[in-house]
Write a protein that binds this DNA or RNA. Structure first.
Lengths: 342, 342
DNA sequence: ATGAAAGCGCTAACAG
DNA sequence: CTGTTAGCGCTTTCAT
């Protein structure tokens, strides 16, 4: 992987440096520097002059050089398990927006659901960024704390001691789902679970159990199933075999896969079975029947996480904070009154 | 936007530098440097020793400092008009994968469909990155060339003289659509157009016209409509009023909006009207009826664009190249034989 | 208010 | 093969 000896430099204009501007303006480099980063510590007149010359030369400060000096790159990295999952698109969107608004740059990394890829990215990017947003991190707790010792870290939908995080309110969310199903007359719930290591999956399951207990409803969990469309057939078949009347799926992806399989098998949704998902991702109201699902504020989560990093890094806030974001149930066409079973 | 005076540094471990390693290993800094970036130019024995010490100290080279010296950040920026659009998720995915595979970092920017935001991002990021992938750029041609004078640039689904690009084969794609409709007995096509400034929209329209002419079919274009779900109602209503039997929509988003509106109005798809989209985005086979649409290799496009940048920047390839990626029609349930009109 | 000089972490000459 | 030196572009004391 050795770089080519010395590739002929592409025919591209050299960028003006602070020295070029200084020379052209007849001042010292430090004055140019001040004119840009400390405008009121330089005479108004010379400042105008310097800025004018800089504009003519098309000069703009080199962020890399600034970063080297200050030890701050004004850059955050956002690592997600699956860049193509519409669920994370919300997080990415919010984070990008917040970062840009704060004048910071966002680096995007895809961990492909792999802890080792995630770790590798953290190691490689670490020295170049001011902090990490780790969404649905696959890293073990102690590794997470180790990373947080070297870089600022804000977790999204993951929580561990001593590390800041923003998480969705799954307690409330699960209760909303169960309340909804109960109000439709359902007496038992089948949960079609996702990956065992999933933190949010565990929280969702715990919440559903607690809420069901309050209603004296029966809950069972099948799985794990892959949290993808492809997980649908196995999950749906299991649900049919179990004669479930209400199934709650690990996420919308799985739920849509389940809907498809049920349609193939001629099972009427919501007539015979009600189906609920988690995430309210793009597509949840495109499928048919449209999906009842728990909506999270994904863009908010991304934005809040970036803001947390900002406070940690640039304002020296050391205390880890936990932020719980509200969730709400979006009722669509996939849930209805429980069928009367023979 | 002045930075806080001097925030108390968070309680975070200082990263080991090359000097720390050099001292601990009892060698010069340059030897450590070589051990990392030019391993075979240092004695195997000392190399092992240095690497060992480095590992103990948790040292890894600071990319920022490297970038300052080399003038290369090993970083590319990808700018997309709408980060939440599943269509661009494919491009992002491919670009991220290619960048990571090449050991480079990807910075993500969202231009929010605005040329000025795009320009601002280019200016701000320019000095810190080795090149830009501009997907569906909103920038005018001359601005694009100006940017390409300062940074390496690879366009995705946009073309202009002197700038490298990768574009989908809309000539073939449009022909595939028209052939398909013709083979189903349709004699005329209504195109529901997107934003007038859209380069791909123009190419699609041109291709459809050419292909229709070959079949002696009639084509008309209505619009512009917003390329979103929200554009659906107006577009669908216009199509109904025009008694169209086959409509081709600017993109899948609009097409799905159209499908919805037609369903609301009780118009049978594909019985009365056939509907075709462009993009084959996530969701195109979730809607009902599922959508016949032209698939592009979006991930490929992103990856190829990154590779182009690599060749430009690190291999000094100056000639702009144009890459045309194949497209293929995915026939689903929204198209069928033309209805016999009274 | 401005200039001179040192240095951020690293690499690239150039010696030895 | 390895150490010394200079410098990437910028900010930051420290003088003036």
């Amino acid at each position: 992987m050795g770089p080519t000896p010395n590739p002929p430099p592409p025919n591209r204009r050299r960028r003006a440096t602070i020295t070029d501007v200084a020379r052209a303006a007849g001042v010292a480099a430090s004055t140019v520097s001040r004119a840009f980063s400390n405008p009121n510590r330089v005479n108004a007149h010379t400042r105008e002059h310097v800025l004018g010359v800089a504009a003519e030369l098309g000069y703009s400060p080199n962020p890399t050089a600034r970063a080297l000096e200050s030890g701050r790159s004004n850059t955050f990295a956002l690592l997600v398990p699956d860049i193509t999952n519409p669920y994370f698109a919300g997080v990415i969107n919010g984070a990008e927006q917040a970062a840009t608004a704060a004048g910071r740059t966002l680096v995007l990394g895809n961990t492909r659901e792999s802890a080792s890829t995630e770790e590798q990215l953290v190691r490689r990017l670490g020295p170049a960024v001011d902090g990490f947003v780790l969404a649905a991190s696959r890293l073990p707790d102690d590794e997470l704390r180790r990373v947080a010792g070297l870089n600022a870290v804000a977790l999204v939908n993951r929580a561990t001691r001593d590390v800041s995080c923003v998480v969705a309110d799954y307690d409330s969310g699960s209760r909303q789902i169960v309340d909804h199903l109960a109000s439709l007359g359902h007496r038992s719930i089948l949960v079609l679970g996702g990956p065992p290591e999933s933190w949010s999956g565990a929280r969702r399951w715990a919440g559903l159990q607690a809420a069901a207990a309050q209603h004296d409803m029966q809950v069972r969990r099948f799985g794990p199933y892959p949290p993808t469309l492809g997980g649908g057939p196995a999950a749906a078949d299991a649900a049919v075999a179990a004669r479930a009347t209400a199934v709650v799926c690990h996420n919308d992806m799985l739920a849509i896969g389940v809907l498809r399989r049920l349609a193939e098998r001629g099972v009427d949704v919501p007539g015979e079975v009600s189906v609920v998902g988690f995430d309210d991702m793009f597509g949840a109201d495109l499928c048919s029947p449209s999906l009842t699902t728990l909506a999270e504020r994904t863009a908010d989560a991304g934005a809040r996480a970036i803001e947390m990093l900002g406070r940690q890094v640039y304002e020296g806030v050391a205390e880890p904070v936990q932020l719980v974001l509200p969730t709400h149930l979006v009722v669509r066409a996939s849930t209805d009154r429980a069928a009367v079973r023979p």
